[in-house]
Write a protein that binds this DNA or RNA. Structure first.
Length: 851
RNA sequence: GCGAGAGUGGCGGAAUUGGUAGACGCGCUGGUCUUAGGAACCAGUAUCCUAUGAUGUGGGGGUUCGAGUCCCCCCUCUCGCACCA
């Protein structure tokens, strides 16, 4: 046996062939049915990690499987190339973000090619290419024209020391990650996309995407958060001002004993009385220091301050105090909450703390609810009390009746509220798509004329991490003349959120070289929607919702004709690994830790949690070593065999060896038998051991087909092929039945091809085929080969297994029962007892119930 | 906190969706062959045990002839929370 399996040779041979012959390029004009398969494109961090390998291996199985099934498959790859890490690299190492990014892309492309992924590389692009982002700028101008992009004030994290805006990720415990100075909120005018205009359509379509996991749809529905309720006006006492609140519980209105406003509420200034001014200022400053995400947390201590003003309850005219409260956010509803402590837990805790009155207005039918005795808010349904004319009404009807009462008096109205907020797309950063707007003192915000696009991101910038965005200091970029009036004007210096680029790249893949607009409508409409999208569960809401929204924008701008971008979605579980952190040096790579101590300072390392692999947490596993040692096929097979795709995977290399061993077994099985089976064919009739292998072959074809097609049970598909290979090794009468053996070996090679394509192409050639295995088609199974004459049934007594019987597959219920009762071990358990019932589950088991 | 998921041998996982719990693989134990074995092959491997027995799918209850699977309560872990991508 001198023809050993040598993955290095085999893999470079086939990768060269694929590079030369381009078998994965997808033509627009094809007789075949189209299939668009897409994995979420990577950020070019420089190195691929096991999460990438897993994601792209999953996608490649589907791409190759669909190609074998005869589809015209589009399977593209590109780069989500704008973003903060490139700027950080520039700040830390003085490399220009463009150079850093394009070098990373080159290195990652090489790494991806080593895995043997079947991409149409002709369609590759990076989102930082001006040929890409220029069309994003054009779409922005169209959105601006239609009022779908607008400007409004919004708060950012500001570091006074660095004079710069910080991303949430750059804020640690309320402090700047670089200088550890306290971060403050700062109000800036920023661009927003009106995603709220599409809230209802985005919500409705969550019921029309059967190919999406229910949990993702559920998260998106909750994110949109449509709720029906009532907007109510509370007049401010001794003033003409009104405080608007949104509530889903107008039925509790009579129980509103105070009002809570967000500290950011615009009315705060006019409401605060002079004697409360100082206390309120201190309070607002304290709340500003609190993390936004924690503000609504139930754990957070509820704090508040009296403004000195009162407002009037529109139901009963009662005068109630107006407070500011840390748990009320300006971003949701109206930024004001009518506080009903008896029936809302947060209000209850707040009222207890500040000794505010608690009044029950709903109680369960027939039970008296005494406010003084409440230990928590009562939020169940019930009947109204203390509510004047509405007493005795059940609370569901009271919602309607009170809304109508308020409406009739012009002080309230039924409304729909969404949790979803408009999408803020302005970033005060350099490495992103320039927003194509010019500010003129006379004309205001003027769009850059279409013929002047693209607004090219200048390359001659200095990045320091201080003093705000470099574009804001780049005079040659900033200074322009107003396209409308010709006077001196200034460019917008903010760039887009990188989520904008990732919201339409899948559409651009259909026509990446098109020069007359963002999309070639013919290509877009042929390929879209994406038939199968694959990516991490961490994108369940934001990216996937933005992409859905942007698709509807493109549709409404007449650029394509689909309503939704992704017909089927597979959310891959994360590849996780334990993190390690030094109190002084932050996250550490595994090689920086020795005996639980940081090698830089010898301090004890905090053992972190198991988290998703990310460069910033330094818990990334680099697959290159694995590929060097075992080859790409083994790395692919292992990442697919280790767990089902949806499941999170805690990284552990145990088992790689087994996958390599298996590929060696496959190799030898073909190699050792290739002469014997050279021209063999399956005979018309097979019997005995040969018939068992013949059946096993067809069972495996069926099992793998079912597991791969639509259900992604790759781990069990691979297990099934392993069983078939075990059966091939156990097959003793190969010499007498070379045809049956050939059939089994060819099935193994075909079925494995989507998983481990290099070795399969090589073995397919060795089996004497001229055509590639991928072009040879997916094997089909013969139903008649699956049939067995005899089946084994389990016999239970009172639900416990007591024996097994072999019966003819065609046996009648009566004879099965008789045989089960006669089984010797079963006899022991039913002797002397009354048989009450016999349950026969066809093809499975018999349960004898005795008493 | 809110929203969404997950929990099965020493380990990764399987279970036809209410019907034999532990497929397949790793690891481990013993053996064959070999100058050698970190190669290959064969046998064994949930736990307790004298077992044709009992127990067993994060914990506790329930429904059922039968529950890993369905229902209720609890625990632990993971993801997202709007400027990481």
């Amino acid at each position: 046996m001198d023809n050993h399996y040598n993955p290095k040779d085999v893999e470079s041979k086939w990768q060269n062939i694929w590079q030369e012959n381009k078998p994965f390029c997808a033509p627009l004009d094809s007789e075949k049915e189209k299939y668009y398969l897409l994995e979420m494109f990577p950020y070019p961090s420089g190195r691929i990690h096991m999460g990438h390998v897993r994601n792209y291996a999953i996608g490649d199985v589907v791409a190759r499987f669909k190609r074998m099934q005869g589809f015209n498959v589009l399977h593209p790859m590109g780069w989500d190339a704008f973003g903060m890490p490139a700027e950080n690299a520039a700040i830390e190492h003085g490399i220009h973000p463009a150079k850093w990014t394009y070098e990373n892309i080159d290195s990652m492309r090489q790494q991806l090619k080593r895995i043997g992924l079947s991409y149409d590389w002709e369609r590759e692009f990076a989102t930082c290419d001006a040929d890409y982002y220029r069309w994003e700028q054009l779409v922005f101008l169209k959105m601006f024209e239609k009022g779908l992009a607008y400007k409004k004030g919004s708060s950012v994290n500001w570091c006074e020391d660095c004079q710069t805006v910080l991303a949430n990720e750059q804020v640690e415990d309320g402090c700047c990650w670089r200088c550890h100075n306290q971060v403050q909120p700062k109000e800036l005018e920023q661009w927003f996309f009106k995603i709220t205009n599409y809230a209802d359509e985005l919500l409705e379509w969550t019921n029309k995407l059967p190919g999406w996991p229910e949990r993702v749809l559920s998260m998106q529905r909750n994110w949109i958060g449509k709720s029906y309720g009532c907007e109510i006006d509370f007049e401010v006492a001794d003033s003409s001002e009104k405080i608007k609140v949104f509530t889903t519980r107008p039925d509790t209105l009579a129980g509103a004993t105070f009002m809570s406003l967000a500290p950011e509420h615009p009315l705060v200034k006019s409401l605060v009385t002079s004697d409360q001014q100082q206390a309120v200022n201190d309070f607002i400053a304290a709340v500003e220091r609190q993390d936004k995400a924690d503000r609504t947390s139930g754990d957070l201590e509820k704090i508040g301050i009296f403004t000195g003003s009162y407002c009037l309850n529109p139901l009963n005219g009662e005068k109630i105090p107006v407070f500011l409260a840390n748990f009320v956010l300006m971003g949701y509803g109206t930024g004001a909450v009518m506080a009903v402590p008896a029936h809302d837990q947060r209000d209850f805790e707040f009222a207890k703390k500040y000794q505010l009155p608690i009044r029950t207005v709903i109680q369960p039918q027939g039970v008296e609810l005494v406010a003084d005795q409440l230990t928590e808010a009562f939020s169940d349904p019930g009947v109204l009390i203390n509510s004047g004319q509405f007493d005795g009404v059940d609370n569901e009807s009271a919602k309607e009746q009170i809304a109508a009462f308020l409406d009739a008096r012009g002080v309230g109205r039924k409304t729909v509220n969404y949790r979803l907020r408009d999408w803020g797309v302005s970033r005060q950063r350099y490495w992103g798509t320039p927003i194509p707007i010019i500010y003129c003192d006379s004309c205001g915000a003027v769009p850059v004329p279409e013929e002047d696009l693209p607004v090219i991101l200048p390359t001659d910038v200095e990045l320091t991490g201080e003093g705000g965005s470099p574009l804001a200091r780049h005079e040659a970029f900033l200074q322009v003349t107003c396209p409308k009036c010709g006077k001196q004007a200034k460019r917008e210096s903010d760039t887009f959120d990188t989520f904008v680029e990732s919201s339409w790249y899948f559409a651009r893949y259909t026509c990446p070289h098109y020069t007359d607009g963002p999309l070639d409508k013919k290509a877009a409409n042929y390929w879209l929607p994406v038939d199968q999208y694959i990516g991490g569960i961490e994108h369940a809401v934001m990216h996937l919702l933005y992409a859905r929204f942007y698709t509807k924008i493109l549709r409404d701008l007449g650029l394509l004709d689909v309503d939704e971008p992704f017909t089927n979605l597979l959310t891959q579980g994360m590849v996780c690994k334990e993190t390690q952190r030094c109190p002084e040096h932050g996250w550490l790579y595994p090689e920086q830790v020795e005996d639980g101590k940081c090698t830089l300072c010898q301090q004890l390392v905090e053992l972190g949690r198991t988290e998703k692999m990310s460069k910033s947490k330094k818990n990334v596993i680099d697959p290159n070593q694995l590929i060097d040692q075992y080859g790409a096929d083994t790395a692919r097979l292992f990442s697919l065999f280790a767990a089902p795709p949806e499941k999170d995977l805690e990284w552990n290399e145990q088992g790689v060896e087994g996958c390599y061993r298996f590929l060696n077994r496959v190799w030898r099985a073909v190699d050792e038998n290739s002469e014997l089976i050279a021209a063999a064919q399956v005979p018309a009739t097979v019997s005995g051991e040969a018939s068992d292998l013949h059946r096993k072959t067809h069972q495996t074809i069926k099992k793998v087909s079912d597991d791969v097609d639509g259900s992604f049970h790759f781990n069990t598909a691979i297990a099934a092929v392993m069983e078939l290979v075990n059966a091939i090794y156990a097959f003793k009468s190969a010499k007498e039945n070379p045809g049956v053996l050939r059939e089994a070996l060819e099935a193994v090679v075909c079925l494995l091809n989507p998983f481990v394509p290099h070795i399969c192409e090589e073995l397919w050639q060795q089996l004497g085929h001229q055509q590639s295995v991928e072009a040879s088609g997916w094997p089909t199974w013969d139903e008649s080969a699956l049939v067995t004459d005899e089946i084994t049934l389990v016999v239970q007594v009172n639900g416990k297994v007591r024996g097994k019987i072999d019966v003819a597959a065609t046996a009648e219920k009566q004879s099965i029962e008789a045989e089960a009762l006669a089984e010797s071990n079963v006899q022991r358990f039913i002797a002397g007892k009354e048989v009450r019932k016999i349950i026969v589950v066809p093809g499975r088991l018999i349960n004898i119930v005795v008493g």
